[in-house]
Simulated assay, not measured.
Amino acid sequence: MKKIGLYFGTFNPIHIGHLAIANHIAEFSDLNEIWMVVTPHSPHKKKKTLLDNHHRFEMVYRATQPYPKIKPSDIEFKLPQPNYTIYTLAHLQEKYPDYEFHLIMGEDNLKSFHKWKNYEVILENHNIYVYPRIAEGIVENQFTCHPKIQRIEAPVMEISSTFIRECIANRKNVRPLLTDTVWQYIDEMGFYK
């Protein structure tokens, strides 16, 4: 049974922090692969700074090429919007019955996990791998010692895509925060300027 960790994000753009966490979990957990699931542009949210789905997927594709255990995924592009994680998990389980799917999330997301649609069902059927984030608020008691929730001692990566976009708009050099392939794509396409 292949164990897949799902790492969801807008990846606008994907940066070395995302890759460092994904690679750490791929190397130091019992997961066989990490799928970087690019979340689609929500039709209800008009985010000017959010690049089209295919551009964000292309950046994730380019960034993950050197890592055989990390794969780009556009699975949510084909699902009805607005979408919930519970539906994505059900869809994946149906499409890949021989795989086991688990979630990867930052500690900041765990703090609001009790507000997710059908979060109890997610916890019943899937493990959650939590990486550290510096964030306000506290994790609900029910999640602190839950048998399905594993904390991963990944490096704390406080790099944000928002910061990168702002820097590019202000003509600051943030090249070290991106893979060369992603930097080249952003530069060629003139994104975030």
Rank of each mutant, 00 (worst) to 15 (best):
S29E: 09
L51F: 13
Y99V: 04
R56T: 11
H54F: 10
R62K: 04
P68E: 00
E124G: 04
S42G: 01
A135F: 01
T39M: 04
N118I: 00
R133V: 03
L103F: 11
K48V: 07
K111T: 01
Y96N: 07
T39I: 03
A26W: 06
I34N: 01
D98P: 13
Q93F: 03
K69N: 14
E76Q: 07
V37E: 01
N127E: 15
H91G: 10
I128W: 08
K95L: 15
G137Y: 00
P97F: 14
A135V: 00
A26D: 04
W116C: 12
E94F: 02
Y61N: 12
H91M: 07
P80G: 14
I34R: 01
Y84Q: 08
I138R: 00
K48N: 11
D74T: 11
K47M: 06
H126T: 07
K78S: 13
K48F: 03
R62T: 02
R62S: 01
H41G: 00
L92A: 14
F113Y: 08
Q93W: 02
I122P: 07
K46R: 13
Y131H: 09
T88F: 08
E27R: 09
S112W: 15
L92C: 14
I34A: 02
I25M: 15
D30I: 11
K46H: 12
E94W: 02
M59I: 04
N23D: 05
A26I: 01
D98Y: 12
I86R: 03
L50Q: 15
F57L: 15
Y99K: 00
L92P: 14
R62F: 01
N32Q: 13
H55N: 06
D74P: 13
E107L: 08
I75E: 14
H24N: 12
